[in-house]
């Protein structure tokens, strides 16, 4: 076994430190080391998008990155979206309300992709939405209700944002 390395990473605001093998994938680190199993692993080779997380605010595929690379990074996973046990994030609420999911396996990846997308583009048209979710596969819905959910989520996020506030994350 190759020498382990220390990874310090902030996930949903909480700092974690672990000793890991260099070959450990970031997706497996999040699920097995941190116990955050909301990040799903589908194809495991960068095609399906189920494992999408935010890395310093940008959506990336956690199955195509090593945990050691995330040392020092700020990550967000689906567990960090809802403000508390009772309430859902507006994007989650929109997916529920507009049937943006059936089996739900792809949903965490969609949610993370959409959350980052709406921070950058709070008022997208349908073509922009479809482009934004082009890296996430859903085998149940046919995407129609997902697109609808994204439109409604954008609307409720805009209604919530204080006037003049920028929804864009830092660093882009």
């Amino acid at each position: 076994m190759a020498a382990t390395r220390t990874v310090r990473v902030r996930v949903n605001g909480t700092l974690h430190e672990r000793e890991v093998e260099p070959r450990l994938l970031l997706s497996d680190f999040i699920r097995h080391e941190l116990g955050l199993t909301g990040t799903h692993v589908g194809c495991e080779h960068g095609v399906c998008g189920a494992c999408t997380i935010l890395w310093n605010g940008e959506p990336v595929r956690s199955c195509l990155a090593l945990a050691v690379q995330a040392d020092g990074a700020e990550l967000e996973t689906v567990e960090g979206l809802a403000p508390d046990e009772e309430r859902l994030h507006p994007v989650q609420a929109a997916f529920v309300e507009h049937h943006g999911l059936q089996c739900g396996f792809c949903t965490p990846g969609f949610l993370m992709t959409v959350v980052a997308f709406l921070r950058e583009n709070p008022d997208p048209d349908e073509a922009e939405i479809r482009r934004a979710i082009s890296g996430n596969l859903c085998r149940c819905t046919g995407y129609v209700n997902i697109v609808k959910a994204v439109k409604h989520a954008a609307r409720s996020l805009r209604a919530r944002a204080p006037a003049g506030a920028s929804a864009a994350p830092a660093g882009r």
Binding site: W55, E58, P59, V60, R61, L64, G135
Partner: peptide, 9 residues
């Protein structure tokens, strides 16, 4: 090229 997630990395 690829997908938004890949282009970020």
């Amino acid at each position: 090229t690829g997908t938004p997630q890949l282009r970020n990395r």
